[in-house]
Nucleic acid binder design. Structure first.
Length: 728
DNA sequence: AGCACGCCGACT
DNA sequence: GTCGGCGTGCTC
């Protein structure tokens, strides 16, 4: 055992062999190695005695970083992801690693600054703080209750706390020193409100889930918004902590809000729980990663990237809102964190819970085949289900995208002092601008997309590449001044509503209105502070927020997804409608949902009315089976893009020709086709679909095909294999 | 990905 | 005569 096989952050799908020399190295450790003219950080994957490489070429490991090694299950997961998603092992390994560890110069922060307040000066300090400086009082309070406060703990109190502490250190009030980050937090008592009463449904589900403890046992926990899934997660986590095990709780990107964090921090001690997401500064991410790796963090609450978090005592994985598309990474290592979580749980032999109100058809199918235990929470403690009403827009007059029943419903809410939400998944004023005289349509010069008219800045904007141009005064082709905006965007809807309800306080929430940092938080405060009567917004409003006074949700124009070429469009639409419907009537006020549609008899809308997801899911699954779509087949997509259309096509043609000779077994290759968005930012995009009813057959094909694609040495073409693509 | 080597055009 | 363009090839 004198050779270490090391993964390096280079796009070459192999491990590199190094002599260990006098070092002591274990798999999972980070090492610094010479690589060509460079020095790189690598991850030791294996130790061996022999190397296939010419021994004269082997070089020595330079140093071993003093960090907790990646546990074996993470190494194994990385290896799986690299093969399954056709991504070089090094790239797969390093996507999950916080940036500071990638630099050879990095000295990991083994010591952390902590602050303490001598009892003798406490009262004197309190006197100097103005009474209304609540934050400062809270800091002093925390300092006098704990022997010392680390920088990170202070930050939990408030982002401004560390600065305040530094100021007090300078003026001599408090003391700071460097302490080892080894505080033992596992023995901290659990908060006692853990024993909340559960409904019969919840108690049943919990009992069932408890049976899976200690072995691989995947479960689908199906329950609508407010049915108490989170409470079950809490209970499971508490039990895992009591057994001395760590829990990984994954949530979609938009759901990991400060509110959710606060909710968990209220339940679990700050030092016991770390959150992990891509918006953290790299130093902070590194610190929290180490807290997970050392086993100090009992709970890791994170987005998709946390599926790779090193957790030596991991005993439970929970994936909340498992159907959410943000669990699939759309670049580099194109992994599905939900699927990798299943692999990780299986290899580790631990239970995993997938939670959702509207499970993905993949998961639903697995539950039906009894691969997953299927648990349902039907009741909704503390609130009634919203009543869903369909409004047939073919038989009712529409004005500015709104029907009279919707206007009437808003009117009632205004009278009762309740809030309404109008949901429209389209930003801007009008999605299309046309010339009334010659039929000219505003299109983006760099994308195959229409330009959207944004009223406020009087610009036409491309929602794909961000290109902007001023709204022309006259038609660029015929000079006619009759330019019209067709269709409804959130801006126009806001205007229409202001016309109908001049005294109502209307707030529009979409990416445009919340672009500046902090405005979103401010808006949330306004909504909660009762300063808003009518909300107009896109899917930003659909997720993760409870507005107690909101009793009406109106869905303005959802039909578009029904004509979509994407076979997943209706699944996504239903998930979205369920989610936004769940915003209505959460507290003790009953909620109402109005859906404007031309197809009120469509099964999708009928399922929304009856809140019967399983029936719809079964129907959609039957359609998928008949059409030969996932989950009944496995798919992989070769995505390619280049500036010139012919370059892309030529590449895909060559790739197809290469592939045709390699096909074995039940694998089907389709002809290259342009992507749905055939051009974005001046680059042409097209793809080649591979399909098989047998996942292993498709995997075998990809494994021989990808090396051949690399050999094609396609200049000027960017390409990637997307296994289990979510969008075609 | 980086970083070198290598072989052809316009510059002090 | 050299500086520099990016094509090609290699990295344990």
């Amino acid at each position: 055992v004198s050779i270490a096989r090391v993964a390096l952050d280079v796009p070459i799908d192999t491990l590199f062999d190094y002599r260990i020399g006098a070092h002591t190295v274990r798999p999972g450790q980070l090492v610094v190695v010479p690589f060509g003219k460079r020095r790189l950080v690598g991850i030791v994957f294996e130790l061996t005695a022999e190397s296939q490489v010419d021994n004269a070429r082997l070089r020595f490991i330079q140093s071993v970083l003093p960090l907790d090694p990646l546990p074996a299950d993470v190494l194994s997961l990385i290896q799986f992801a690299s093969t399954y998603y056709r991504c070089p092992i090094g790239e797969a390994a390093f996507t999950s690693l916080p940036a500071p560890f990638r630099q050879p110069r990095y000295a990991p922060a083994e010591k952390q600054k902590s602050y303490s307040l001598p009892q003798s000066v406490r009262d004197a300090l309190l006197e100097t703080i103005p009474r209304r400086a609540i934050l400062l009082h809270r800091i002093v309070d925390a300092l006098s209750r704990a022997p010392a406060l680390t920088r990170e703990e202070a930050r939990q109190l408030s982002p401004r706390a560390p600065a305040a502490l530094e100021k007090w250190v300078k003026s001599g009030w408090i003391e700071s020193r460097l302490t080892e980050v080894t505080e033992q937090v596992l023995d901290l008592p659990l908060q006692e409100d853990a024993k909340l009463s559960l409904t019969a449904d919840q108690a049943n589900a919990l009992a069932e889930l408890e049976q899976g403890c200690g072995k691989y046992s995947p479960s689908l926990l199906e329950g609508i918004t407010g049915s108490g899934k989170t409470e079950i997660y809490f209970q499971l986590i508490v039990r895992a902590l009591e057994r001395g095990q760590q829990t990984l709780l994954m949530v979609p990107e938009i759901n990991l809000t400060p509110q959710l964090e606060a909710r968990f921090h209220a339940r679990f001690d700050a030092r016991r729980l770390v959150t992990l997401h891509s918006n953290l500064s790299s130093g902070e991410r590194a610190r929290r990663w180490m807290a997970a790796a050392s086993g100090r963090a009992g709970v890791v609450l994170g987005t998709r990237l946390s599926v790779f978090a090193p957790m030596p005592r991991l005993g439970l994985i929970i994936v909340d809102e498992e159907h959410d598309a943000s669990f699939k990474q759309q670049e580099g290592l194109r992994y599905s964190a939900r699927d990798l979580a299943l692999v990780r749980a299986q290899r580790l032999g631990i239970p995993i819970v997938l939670g959702s109100a509207t499970p993905s058809l993949e998961t639903f199918h697995n539950a039906q085949k009894k691969k997953f235990r299927h648990l349902r929470l039907s009741s909704r403690p503390g609130a009634k289900l919203p009543k869903v009403r369909l409004i047939d827009t073919q038989s009712i007059a529409m004005a500015g995208g709104l029907s009279e029943p919707v206007l009437e419903a808003i009117r009632q809410r205004l009278q009762r002092g309740e809030q309404s939400l109008i949901f429209l998944n389209r930003r801007g004023f009008a999605p299309v601008v046309v010339c009334g005289a010659c039929g000219w349509v505003g299109e983006c010069g760099r994308c195959s997309a229409r330009l959207v008219w944004h009223l406020k800045d009087a610009v036409l904007r491309c929602h794909y590449c961000g290109h902007e141009q001023r709204l022309p005064l006259a038609c660029p082709t015929c000079g006619d001044q009759d330019l019209q905006g067709l269709g409804q965007g959130t801006q126009r809807l806001e205007q229409t509503l202001a016309g109908h309800f001049p005294s109502a306080r209307i707030l529009r929430i979409d990416r445009d209105s919340t672009r500046r940092k902090g405005t979103w938080d401010g808006m949330l405060k306004e909504i909660h502070g009762d300063a808003v009567d009518i909300l107009v917004g896109t899917q930003m409003l659909a997720k993760g927020h409870d507005f107690p006074k909101l009793t009406l949700v109106a869905i303005a124009n959802p039909d578009g997804a029904l004509y979509s070429a994407d076979f997943r469009a209706s699944e996504k639409l239903f998930q979205q409608l369920m989610q936004v419907s769940g915003r209505a009537g959460r507290a003790h006020l009953p909620g109402e949902v109005l859906v404007q549609t031309r197809f009120p008899t469509h099964p999708l809308y009928q399922a929304l009315v009856s809140q019967n997801f399983p029936e719809l899911a079964e129907q959609m699954l039957a359609e998928r089976q008949q059409a030969g779509f996932p989950p009944f087949v496995a798919q992989a997509l070769l995505r390619a893009e280049a500036v010139s259309e012919s370059t892309v096509n030529a590449f895909l043609k060559r790739a197809a020709k290469e592939g045709a000779t390699l096909i074995e077994g039940d694998v089907t290759m389709y002809d290259p086709v342009p992507a749905t968005m055939a051009r974005i930012a001046g680059r042409h995009r097209a793809h080649l679909l591979m399909q098989s009813p047998l996942r292993p057959a498709l995997q075998r094909f990809l494994q021989v095909w990808t090396p051949k694609l690399e050999q094609l040495k396609a200049r000027n073409v960017r390409w990637i294999i997307d296994v289990d693509p979510l969008e075609l």
